[in-house]
C-alpha cells in the first residue's frame, strides 16, 4: 500500500496535470486550486520539485528566457500522472466512506 501524498505534493501534481507550468505559475495555480487556503513559497516548491523530478513524477518540459531571466516549465510525467490518479482514487474511497457514515448519522438522528 502506498503512502498518502502530502498536500503540497498533491497540489503541485494537480497544478501540472492540465499543462506544463513554470515555478511562479505553479505557485499561483496551487493557491487557486486550494481556494486561497494553501500558499506555497519558493523554498517549499523547489524542495518538492527536487524530489518529484528525482522520483521522475515531474520532468522539465522546456525553458525560455523572459526579461533576461530563465523560466523553466515543468510537466507531469506518465508515472506522476499514475501516482496522482492513485491518490485521487484513495481520497475518493475515503470520502465515500465519510459521506456514507455522515448520511447514516443524519438519518439515524443520533449524535
Amino acid at each position: 500500500m502506498t503512502n498518502a501524498l502530502r498536500e503540497p505534493t498533491f497540489l503541485i501534481l494537480t497544478a501540472l496535470a492540465e499543462e506544463p507550468r513554470h515555478g511562479y505559475g505553479i505557485l499561483r495555480d496551487v493557491e487557486q486550486i486550494s481556494g486561497g487556503r494553501v500558499r506555497l513559497r519558493a523554498g517549499t516548491l523547489y524542495t518538492a520539485l527536487d524530489r518529484l523530478t528525482s522520483d521522475e513524477w515531474v520532468a522539465v518540459d522546456r525553458e525560455e528566457v523572459v526579461d533576461s531571466r530563465l523560466r523553466r516549465y515543468y510537466r507531469l510525467t506518465d508515472s506522476g500522472a499514475a501516482r496522482l490518479a492513485e491518490e485521487i482514487k484513495r481520497v475518493r474511497a475515503t470520502t465515500r466512506v465519510a459521506e456514507t457514515r455522515l448520511r447514516a448519522r443524519l438519518i439515524g438522528g443520533t449524535a
Binding site: 515555478g23 519558493a42 516548491l45 523547489y46 520539485l49 523572459v66 531571466r69 530563465l70 523560466r71 523553466r72
Partner: peptide, 9 residues
C-alpha cells in the same frame, strides 16, 4: 535552479 528561483521570488 538559482536563477529560476530568484525570478519566482
Amino acid at each position: 535552479h538559482g536563477d529560476e528561483m530568484l525570478g519566482v521570488l
